[in-house]
Write a protein that binds this DNA or RNA. Structure first.
Length: 309
DNA sequence: AAAGCGTGGTT
DNA sequence: TAACCAAGCTT
Protein backbone atom coordinates (compact mmCIF):
# COMPACT_ATOMS: atom_id res chain seq x y z
CA UNK A 1 0.00 0.00 0.00
CA UNK A 2 1.36 3.40 -0.89
CA UNK A 3 2.08 5.72 1.98
CA UNK A 4 -0.62 8.19 2.89
CA UNK A 5 -3.35 6.50 0.93
CA UNK A 6 -5.66 5.64 3.76
CA UNK A 7 -8.60 7.29 2.07
CA UNK A 8 -9.84 7.17 -1.48
CA UNK A 9 -7.05 9.25 -2.95
CA UNK A 10 -5.77 6.56 -5.28
CA UNK A 11 -9.28 5.91 -6.57
CA UNK A 12 -9.89 9.58 -7.20
CA UNK A 13 -6.56 9.89 -9.01
CA UNK A 14 -7.31 6.86 -11.15
CA UNK A 15 -10.74 8.11 -12.14
CA UNK A 16 -9.69 11.67 -12.89
CA UNK A 17 -6.68 10.64 -14.95
CA UNK A 18 -8.79 8.14 -16.91
CA UNK A 19 -11.36 10.85 -17.58
CA UNK A 20 -8.58 13.18 -18.73
CA UNK A 21 -7.48 10.74 -21.42
CA UNK A 22 -10.67 11.59 -23.29
CA UNK A 23 -11.56 15.02 -22.01
CA UNK A 24 -8.25 16.85 -22.37
CA UNK A 25 -8.54 19.95 -24.46
CA UNK A 26 -6.02 20.26 -27.23
CA UNK A 27 -3.99 23.28 -26.26
CA UNK A 28 -0.98 24.39 -28.29
CA UNK A 29 1.47 24.15 -25.39
CA UNK A 30 0.45 20.54 -24.94
CA UNK A 31 1.64 19.58 -28.42
CA UNK A 32 4.61 17.32 -28.73
CA UNK A 33 7.74 19.23 -29.54
CA UNK A 34 6.95 22.16 -27.28
CA UNK A 35 10.09 23.04 -25.35
CA UNK A 36 10.29 23.50 -21.58
CA UNK A 37 10.71 27.20 -22.27
CA UNK A 38 7.47 27.15 -24.25
CA UNK A 39 5.75 25.57 -21.29
CA UNK A 40 7.07 28.25 -18.98
CA UNK A 41 5.88 30.98 -21.35
CA UNK A 42 2.40 29.47 -21.35
CA UNK A 43 2.32 29.20 -17.56
CA UNK A 44 3.28 32.83 -17.07
CA UNK A 45 0.69 33.98 -19.60
CA UNK A 46 -1.92 31.84 -17.90
CA UNK A 47 -1.39 33.42 -14.50
CA UNK A 48 -4.80 34.95 -13.79
CA UNK A 49 -5.67 34.98 -17.48
CA UNK A 50 -8.23 32.70 -19.18
CA UNK A 51 -6.90 30.04 -21.52
CA UNK A 52 -8.88 31.21 -24.53
CA UNK A 53 -7.25 34.60 -24.46
CA UNK A 54 -3.74 33.18 -24.08
CA UNK A 55 -3.81 30.77 -27.03
CA UNK A 56 -3.33 33.20 -29.95
CA UNK A 57 -0.82 35.33 -28.06
CA UNK A 58 1.28 32.30 -27.08
CA UNK A 59 1.33 31.04 -30.64
CA UNK A 60 2.52 34.32 -32.11
CA UNK A 61 4.96 34.80 -29.26
CA UNK A 62 6.65 31.44 -29.70
CA UNK A 63 7.08 32.02 -33.41
CA UNK A 64 8.69 35.37 -32.77
CA UNK A 65 10.78 34.46 -29.72
CA UNK A 66 11.15 30.68 -29.60
CA UNK A 67 14.02 30.62 -27.11
CA UNK A 68 15.14 32.44 -23.97
CA UNK A 69 17.99 34.08 -25.88
CA UNK A 70 15.59 35.39 -28.51
CA UNK A 71 13.36 36.93 -25.89
CA UNK A 72 16.28 38.30 -23.92
CA UNK A 73 17.40 40.12 -27.05
CA UNK A 74 14.00 41.69 -27.66
CA UNK A 75 13.34 45.22 -26.55
CA UNK A 76 10.81 45.81 -23.77
CA UNK A 77 8.49 47.87 -25.91
CA UNK A 78 8.20 45.06 -28.48
CA UNK A 79 7.56 42.60 -25.69
CA UNK A 80 4.87 44.77 -24.10
CA UNK A 81 3.13 45.30 -27.42
CA UNK A 82 3.18 41.58 -28.16
CA UNK A 83 1.74 40.95 -24.70
CA UNK A 84 -1.24 42.91 -25.90
CA UNK A 85 -4.29 42.77 -23.67
CA UNK A 86 -3.42 39.76 -21.58
CA UNK A 87 -3.34 42.01 -18.55
CA UNK A 88 -0.81 42.42 -15.73
CA UNK A 89 1.85 43.60 -18.20
CA UNK A 90 4.64 43.35 -15.64
CA UNK A 91 4.42 39.64 -16.27
CA UNK A 92 5.79 40.37 -19.75
CA UNK A 93 8.73 42.24 -18.28
CA UNK A 94 9.37 39.50 -15.77
CA UNK A 95 9.25 36.87 -18.47
CA UNK A 96 11.87 38.78 -20.40
CA UNK A 97 13.93 39.11 -17.22
CA UNK A 98 13.57 35.37 -16.70
CA UNK A 99 14.90 34.84 -20.22
CA UNK A 100 17.92 36.96 -19.37
CA UNK A 101 18.49 35.02 -16.19
CA UNK A 102 18.29 31.72 -18.06
CA UNK A 103 20.91 33.02 -20.44
CA UNK A 104 23.22 34.29 -17.77
CA UNK A 105 22.84 31.64 -15.12
CA UNK A 106 21.93 28.51 -17.08
CA UNK A 107 23.58 28.87 -20.45
CA UNK A 108 20.30 29.47 -22.24
CA UNK A 109 18.63 26.25 -21.08
CA UNK A 110 15.69 26.35 -18.70
CA UNK A 111 16.83 24.81 -15.38
CA UNK A 112 15.25 21.60 -14.13
CA UNK A 113 15.24 22.01 -10.38
CA UNK A 114 12.49 23.60 -8.38
CA UNK A 115 14.81 25.99 -6.57
CA UNK A 116 16.43 27.21 -9.80
CA UNK A 117 13.01 27.72 -11.34
CA UNK A 118 11.73 29.56 -8.29
CA UNK A 119 14.66 31.92 -8.52
CA UNK A 120 13.49 33.17 -11.92
CA UNK A 121 11.51 36.42 -12.01
CA UNK A 122 7.76 35.85 -12.16
CA UNK A 123 8.05 32.19 -11.19
CA UNK A 124 6.37 31.26 -7.93
CA UNK A 125 5.30 28.07 -6.25
CA UNK A 126 2.62 27.15 -8.75
CA UNK A 127 4.59 27.95 -11.90
CA UNK A 128 7.71 26.09 -10.76
CA UNK A 129 5.64 23.00 -9.94
CA UNK A 130 3.79 23.24 -13.24
CA UNK A 131 7.01 23.39 -15.25
CA UNK A 132 8.35 20.37 -13.37
CA UNK A 133 5.19 18.42 -14.14
CA UNK A 134 4.37 19.53 -17.67
CA UNK A 135 7.79 20.22 -19.15
CA UNK A 136 9.88 17.60 -17.37
CA UNK A 137 7.24 15.04 -16.42
CA UNK A 138 8.42 15.13 -12.88
CA UNK A 139 6.53 14.58 -9.65
CA UNK A 140 5.50 17.87 -8.04
CA UNK A 141 2.63 19.43 -6.15
CA UNK A 142 0.71 21.54 -8.61
CA UNK A 143 -1.77 23.60 -6.64
CA UNK A 144 -3.52 26.18 -8.73
CA UNK A 145 -6.97 27.58 -8.18
CA UNK A 146 -8.52 24.66 -10.08
CA UNK A 147 -6.81 21.89 -8.14
CA UNK A 148 -7.43 23.71 -4.87
CA UNK A 149 -11.13 23.91 -5.68
CA UNK A 150 -11.34 20.25 -6.68
CA UNK A 151 -9.66 19.20 -3.45
CA UNK A 152 -11.75 21.58 -1.36
CA UNK A 153 -14.87 19.91 -2.71
CA UNK A 154 -13.87 16.27 -3.09
CA UNK A 155 -11.64 16.04 -0.04
CA UNK A 156 -12.83 18.72 2.36
CA UNK A 157 -16.51 18.91 1.48
CA UNK A 158 -16.59 22.67 1.09
CA UNK A 159 -17.41 24.77 -1.90
CA UNK A 160 -14.27 26.89 -2.06
CA UNK A 161 -10.65 26.69 -0.96
CA UNK A 162 -9.33 29.14 1.61
CA UNK A 163 -8.40 32.58 0.44
CA UNK A 164 -4.70 31.78 0.62
CA UNK A 165 -2.94 28.48 0.48
CA UNK A 166 -2.39 26.79 3.85
CA UNK A 167 0.20 24.29 5.02
CA UNK A 168 -2.55 21.77 5.67
CA UNK A 169 -3.77 22.19 2.14
CA UNK A 170 -0.34 21.39 0.75
CA UNK A 171 -0.05 18.43 3.08
CA UNK A 172 -3.38 17.05 1.88
CA UNK A 173 -2.50 17.86 -1.71
CA UNK A 174 0.59 15.66 -1.53
CA UNK A 175 -1.57 12.69 -0.55
CA UNK A 176 -3.03 12.72 -4.01
CA UNK A 177 0.28 12.93 -5.85
CA UNK A 178 1.24 9.48 -7.17
CA UNK A 179 4.75 8.22 -6.44
CA UNK A 180 5.50 7.68 -10.09
CA UNK A 181 6.72 10.71 -12.02
CA UNK A 182 4.61 10.06 -15.08
CA UNK A 183 1.45 9.37 -13.08
CA UNK A 184 2.08 12.41 -10.93
CA UNK A 185 2.36 14.73 -13.89
CA UNK A 186 -0.77 13.18 -15.36
CA UNK A 187 -2.63 13.84 -12.13
CA UNK A 188 -1.46 17.44 -12.16
CA UNK A 189 -2.79 18.03 -15.67
CA UNK A 190 -5.96 16.05 -15.12
CA UNK A 191 -6.95 17.65 -11.83
CA UNK A 192 -6.39 21.10 -13.25
CA UNK A 193 -8.47 20.23 -16.27
CA UNK A 194 -11.29 18.92 -14.10
CA UNK A 195 -11.36 22.16 -12.13
CA UNK A 196 -11.19 24.26 -15.28
CA UNK A 197 -13.90 22.52 -17.26
CA UNK A 198 -16.13 20.52 -14.90
CA UNK A 199 -15.65 21.45 -11.26
CA UNK A 200 -15.92 25.14 -12.00
CA UNK A 201 -16.29 27.91 -9.46
CA UNK A 202 -19.80 29.03 -10.39
CA UNK A 203 -21.84 26.23 -11.87
CA UNK A 204 -20.10 22.87 -11.47
CA UNK A 205 -21.15 20.20 -13.94
CA UNK A 206 -21.40 17.23 -11.63
CA UNK A 207 -23.13 15.10 -14.21
CA UNK A 208 -20.04 14.35 -16.29
CA UNK A 209 -17.74 14.47 -13.26
CA UNK A 210 -15.72 11.26 -12.90
CA UNK A 211 -15.56 11.60 -9.11
CA UNK A 212 -19.06 12.81 -8.31
CA UNK A 213 -19.58 9.63 -6.31
CA UNK A 214 -16.42 10.38 -4.32
CA UNK A 215 -17.15 14.04 -3.67
CA UNK A 216 -17.60 15.09 -0.05
CA UNK A 217 -19.22 18.36 -0.97
CA UNK A 218 -21.80 16.54 -3.05
CA UNK A 219 -22.33 13.93 -0.34
CA UNK A 220 -23.02 16.71 2.14
CA UNK A 221 -25.69 18.16 -0.14
CA UNK A 222 -23.63 21.05 -1.53
CA UNK A 223 -23.58 23.21 1.59
CA UNK A 224 -23.20 26.89 0.77
CA UNK A 225 -19.87 28.55 1.40
CA UNK A 226 -19.76 29.76 4.97
CA UNK A 227 -16.13 30.81 5.10
CA UNK A 228 -14.89 34.38 4.96
CA UNK A 229 -16.54 36.38 2.19
CA UNK A 230 -14.46 36.46 -0.97
CA UNK A 231 -13.15 39.92 -1.70
CA UNK A 232 -14.57 41.62 -4.73
CA UNK A 233 -11.92 43.67 -6.45
CA UNK A 234 -13.17 47.06 -7.48
CA UNK A 235 -12.32 48.50 -10.84
CA UNK A 236 -14.08 51.76 -11.69
CA UNK A 237 -11.85 54.66 -10.83
CA UNK A 238 -9.01 52.59 -9.42
CA UNK A 239 -5.35 53.13 -10.15
CA UNK A 240 -5.44 49.80 -11.90
CA UNK A 241 -7.96 51.07 -14.37
CA UNK A 242 -5.97 54.25 -14.85
CA UNK A 243 -2.71 52.35 -15.38
CA UNK A 244 -4.44 50.08 -17.86
CA UNK A 245 -5.76 53.10 -19.69
CA UNK A 246 -2.28 54.59 -19.94
CA UNK A 247 -0.68 51.32 -21.04
CA UNK A 248 -3.30 50.81 -23.74
CA UNK A 249 -2.50 54.27 -25.10
CA UNK A 250 1.25 53.60 -25.05
CA UNK A 251 0.83 50.25 -26.78
CA UNK A 252 -1.32 51.88 -29.43
CA UNK A 253 1.05 54.71 -30.24
CA UNK A 254 4.22 54.48 -32.30
CA UNK A 255 5.62 57.54 -30.58
CA UNK A 256 5.61 58.98 -27.05
CA UNK A 257 2.23 60.15 -25.83
CA UNK A 258 1.69 63.49 -24.11
CA UNK A 259 0.01 62.86 -20.78
CA UNK A 260 -2.38 65.64 -21.66
CA UNK A 261 -3.70 63.60 -24.57
CA UNK A 262 -4.97 60.92 -22.22
CA UNK A 263 -8.54 61.82 -21.48
CA UNK A 264 -8.66 60.80 -17.85
CA UNK A 265 -10.96 62.60 -15.43
CA UNK A 266 -8.52 62.91 -12.53
CA UNK A 267 -5.24 64.70 -13.26
CA UNK A 268 -3.75 63.85 -9.91
CA UNK A 269 -4.47 60.18 -10.33
CA UNK A 270 -3.17 60.23 -13.88
CA UNK A 271 0.13 61.72 -12.74
CA UNK A 272 0.41 59.27 -9.89
CA UNK A 273 -0.21 56.31 -12.16
CA UNK A 274 2.26 57.57 -14.74
CA UNK A 275 4.84 57.76 -11.96
CA UNK A 276 4.08 54.26 -10.77
CA UNK A 277 4.33 52.85 -14.30
CA UNK A 278 7.73 54.48 -14.68
CA UNK A 279 8.78 53.11 -11.31
CA UNK A 280 7.67 49.65 -12.42
CA UNK A 281 9.68 49.90 -15.60
CA UNK A 282 6.55 49.74 -17.72
CA UNK A 283 6.93 53.27 -19.06
CA UNK A 284 9.61 55.87 -19.67
CA UNK A 285 9.43 59.63 -19.67
CA UNK A 286 10.44 61.82 -22.57
CA UNK A 287 9.95 65.25 -21.13
CA UNK A 288 6.19 65.70 -20.78
CA UNK A 289 5.52 62.60 -22.79
CA UNK A 290 5.44 58.93 -21.97
CA UNK A 291 6.37 55.86 -23.97
CA UNK A 292 6.93 52.18 -23.54
CA UNK A 293 10.43 51.37 -22.26
CA UNK A 294 12.97 50.73 -24.99
CA UNK A 295 11.35 53.13 -27.38
CA UNK A 296 14.10 54.93 -29.29
CA UNK A 297 13.29 58.50 -30.20
CA UNK A 298 14.61 59.47 -33.59
CA UNK A 299 18.18 60.48 -32.83
CA UNK A 300 17.79 64.02 -33.96
CA UNK A 301 19.81 66.46 -31.94
CA UNK A 302 17.94 66.53 -28.66
CA UNK A 303 14.63 67.98 -29.72
CA UNK A 304 12.67 66.05 -27.23
CA UNK A 305 12.25 69.07 -25.05
CA UNK A 306 12.38 72.71 -25.99
CA UNK A 307 15.92 73.92 -25.52
CA UNK A 308 16.44 76.05 -22.49
CA UNK A 309 18.91 78.83 -22.94
C1' DA B 1 0.43 38.90 5.05
C1' DA B 2 -2.81 41.56 2.93
C1' DA B 3 -3.14 44.29 -0.80
C1' DG B 4 -2.03 45.64 -5.43
C1' DC B 5 -1.70 44.45 -10.04
C1' DG B 6 -5.28 44.21 -16.19
C1' DT B 7 -8.63 42.74 -18.90
C1' DG B 8 -12.76 40.93 -20.65
C1' DG B 9 -15.95 37.05 -20.77
C1' DT B 10 -19.70 34.68 -18.04
C1' DT B 11 -23.57 34.36 -14.95
C1' DT C 1 -26.52 44.01 -15.06
C1' DA C 2 -23.39 44.05 -11.69
C1' DA C 3 -20.67 40.73 -9.76
C1' DC C 4 -17.87 37.21 -10.26
C1' DC C 5 -14.00 34.96 -12.01
C1' DA C 6 -9.53 33.61 -14.44
C1' DA C 7 -3.14 27.80 -14.97
C1' DG C 8 -0.48 33.86 -9.35
C1' DC C 9 3.45 36.73 -8.09
C1' DT C 10 5.49 40.26 -5.45
C1' DT C 11 6.21 43.35 -1.71
Amino acid sequence: MREGCSGGEAEVVARVTAWFADAARTLPWRSSGVTPWGVLVSEVMLQQTPTARVVPVWEAWMVRWPTPSALAAASPDEVLRAWGRLGYPRRALRLRAAAEAVEERHGGELPETESDLLALPGVGSYTAAAVLAFAYRRRSLVLDVNVRRVLARVDQGVEHPARSETAGERERGWRFVPDDDEQASLWAAASMELGATVCTARSPKCDPCPVAAHCSWRARGYPAWDGPPRVAQSWEGTDRQCRGWIMAALRGSPSPVPLGDLAWPDDVQLARCADSLVADGLAVRHGPRLSLPGFEPVPADSDDEPAVA
